[in-house]
Structures are given as structure tokens and as C-alpha cells.
Simulated scan of single mutants.
Amino acid sequence: MKVEGFELRRVAMPLVSPFRTSFGTQTARDILLVRAVTDAAEGWGECVTLPDPVYSPEYTDGAVDVMKRFFIPALAAAGIADATSIGEVLKPFKAHRMAKAALETAVLDAELRAEGRSFARELGSVHDSVPCGVSVGIMESVPQLLDAVGGYLDEGYARIKLKIEPGWDIQVVRAVRERFGDVLLQVDANTAYTLGDARHLAKLDPFDLLLIEQPLEEEDVLGHAELAKVVKTPICLDESITSAQTAAAAIRLGATSVINIKPGRVGGYLEARRIHDLATAHGIPVWCGGMIESGLGRAANLALASLPGFTLPGDVSASGRFYETDITEPFVMRDGRLDVPTGPGLGVTPVAAILDELTTAVEWVPV
């Protein structure tokens, strides 16, 4: 297979409602899509960067720049013929894992479409569908939050994740528990706390949470290991896990007992599978995190979440959770689950008319 070039496409997708976390509020997603064109097929990848470097050092304009100036020329010089070689070719370039992941996913999708194989089969899927979890942002009031949680439970979501930060944590979890009982519940701090908050975070222990996600700064792996000695709620790492190597170190240090695998954050779905395999070997449960992806990224995440080690519901919500109009045929939840696509490659493609309507910029970069 010969890669002929990459199309970098920006699409603007309004959210159905603002989504607030400790690192900012989103009202729309400026999504960078990558289309790989080969002599055998085309493939799609989604870059999950945010407009600003607040969740990670990466940001969307930077991803475009690094792809054009460094990554695509390097792939052209190497004459890549398959997706498995992309990681090695781009290894000399530090970080920028989300940009690398988008390129790798696009080429892998094209490769699998040409061969008639599905993304899920390639990764090692064992399930036809996966349970859906939903992430609930920080809101103006507790009653507003309770109404939102009740609505998601009525829709059939199997697990609720609450975003928390200092001043919006214990009382919020207590209110949800009191209203909704033993629903599967976890919290996500997005690095909003310090080790000095350990005793405060231990007040979450009586609420029988599945986990507390990334309470401390991403570089404070030792701090998470110390925190795990104080709180009984399982510690889950998100931002701290950027590769199988960092996952192995966190597990060895006792800094995490659950791992959130976000493929973009770790450099792609092939590295995500390596982290899954590592965690499974150590008896560490994993789940698939989300970055408010379009249907393209959602399809790939569903494939990943259908691997055997993904024993907790992930952030693989239906299209309607975030978007009134998705760029693919919408993913619709049934009985709290989403079907894993089985068609060639990702198993979905953009709806041309919708994609064109939402597109704000397109650039072709030949190889």
C-alpha cells in the first residue's frame, strides 16, 4: 500500500450544552480530522487536541503545524507502507502523541478497509457491544446536576462520572448517592488537587465510588502512590499515563489500581492495546476514556473498549450526549450499550453533506 497524502480538515461541531471541567468550559468542538489517501483505500483519523494546551501540552493549531512541518515529511521520506511502522518512524520526535495517533489511525483505517478487516478485529475485540458511561461536567447548582444525572440514568447509561474540583466534590457526590442510590459512580478531578488534600479526598471513601480519576498533577506519580495509602477509593490515572512504559512505572509504584486509556493521549490505538495487555497481565482493570469525539473517534473507541481487559464502563456515550448532528451516522444506545462497528476499517464514514456543512478549513499535504 502506498500512501499518497493526507488531508487535514477542521470541522466545527456545536455541543448540545456547555461542558465544564476544572480546565475550562467547552461550548463547541473544533475538531481536526485526518484523511489518509492511499493507492488502495482511504482512511480517517481524529485528532483529539483541544484549542488550548490545558488538558495536555498539545493544542489543535500546534498539531496541524507539527504534522505539516515534521511528521508527514518524515513519513514521506520513510516510504511507509503500513500503520505499524508509523510509531517507529515518528519516534525521534518528542511527544505530540495526539497528532501521531491521528496519522496512525488514518493509515490503519485505510489499510484495514483495503483488506476488508475491521478495526475491532485488528485490536482483538471479544464483545459485540459495550456498556455506556457518561461524563457529567461541573454545573451551576446541585439541583441542576441531579436533574442531568437523572436524565442520563433514564436514557439507560450504566455508569455516571462526575467532574469534581475543590468546592464541588463531597457535597455533590453525597447528593447523587442520596438521590440515586447504588448507581455505578466515579469522579474525575482532572489534576485539580494536591497531596495536601489527601484527608479531604478520603471523605469520598464512604460513598463506594468505582474510582477517583487523576486527582493530582500528571507528573506527580509518587504523590498518587502516597495518596493511595490514605484513601480507600481506588486511584485511576489518566493524564499521567502517556505510554505502556509510564503505565508500567505507575503500576510498579502503586500509584494506580485502575487505568483510563485514551488512545490519543498515549499515541494511538496500537499503543493503547499494549497498555491494555500490560494492565491485564498485572490484574489492573482498564476503561476507555473519551475526548468528546465525533462518530469517527467514537467508532475507534468502541472497538478498543470491546477488548477483554476493559471491564469497567467507559466514556463511550451515544452521539446525542454531545452532538445534535454527528458527522457519521449517529451512534444510538440500546439498553445501555453501543454496538461495536464490524465493517471494514472503522466501520463508519462521514456523511458527505454534513461534513461539508461543518467544515471550516481543508488542506492537502502530499507524500
Rank of each mutant, 00 (worst) to 15 (best):
R298Y: 09
W287H: 14
D335Y: 04
T246A: 01
R334V: 09
V286Y: 03
I80E: 01
T360R: 14
E178K: 09
Q26R: 13
S129A: 14
V89E: 00
T21G: 05
V316K: 06
S17N: 13
A114Y: 04
P285M: 08
H96L: 05
L33H: 01
I275Y: 05
D109W: 05
E104F: 10
P263H: 00
G137C: 11
H276Y: 04
G116C: 03
E271Q: 12
H282E: 12
T25I: 09
P206M: 01
P18Y: 10
R321F: 08
F6Q: 08
L296M: 08
C132L: 07
A148I: 05
L270W: 05
I212S: 04
P263E: 00
A228W: 15
P143K: 07
L346A: 02
L195N: 08
A303E: 09
R35W: 01
L227F: 13
Y152T: 06
L108D: 05
V107H: 01
T280D: 13
V130G: 06
D188I: 08
R69E: 10
T246V: 08
K94R: 11
L201Y: 07
D205E: 14
A361W: 03
A279N: 07
V48F: 00
Y59V: 03
L222R: 15
E219A: 14
V332Y: 05
G320K: 14
V348C: 02
A41S: 14
G267P: 12
Y152E: 14
D109M: 13
E219R: 15
E88S: 10
P18N: 11
V367I: 15
R179V: 11
H127V: 04
N190K: 08
L90Y: 06
F310T: 04
R10P: 07
T280R: 15
L103W: 03
L216N: 13
D315P: 01
R334K: 11
A28V: 02
T49L: 10
T246E: 04
L278E: 15
L204G: 08
D277I: 04
A74T: 04
I164R: 09
V89L: 02
F23M: 08
P215C: 12
D205W: 14
D326W: 06
I241W: 00
Y55A: 13
C47E: 10
A353Y: 10
L103R: 02
A114F: 04
L185S: 12
D335R: 11
D182G: 05
V183M: 07
Y59M: 02
I138D: 11
L270T: 05
R265T: 00
M67C: 15
G268T: 02
E155N: 01
C47R: 06
P234N: 14
A202E: 11
H224W: 11
F180D: 04
D277Q: 11
A272Q: 03
H282S: 08
G5T: 00
I251C: 04
H127M: 13
F207Y: 15
S294V: 00
T256P: 02
A12I: 13
C236G: 05
Y157R: 06
A40C: 10
V48G: 02
K2Y: 09
K91R: 15
Y193Q: 09
S129L: 01
E324L: 12
V176R: 01
S125F: 11
E115D: 13
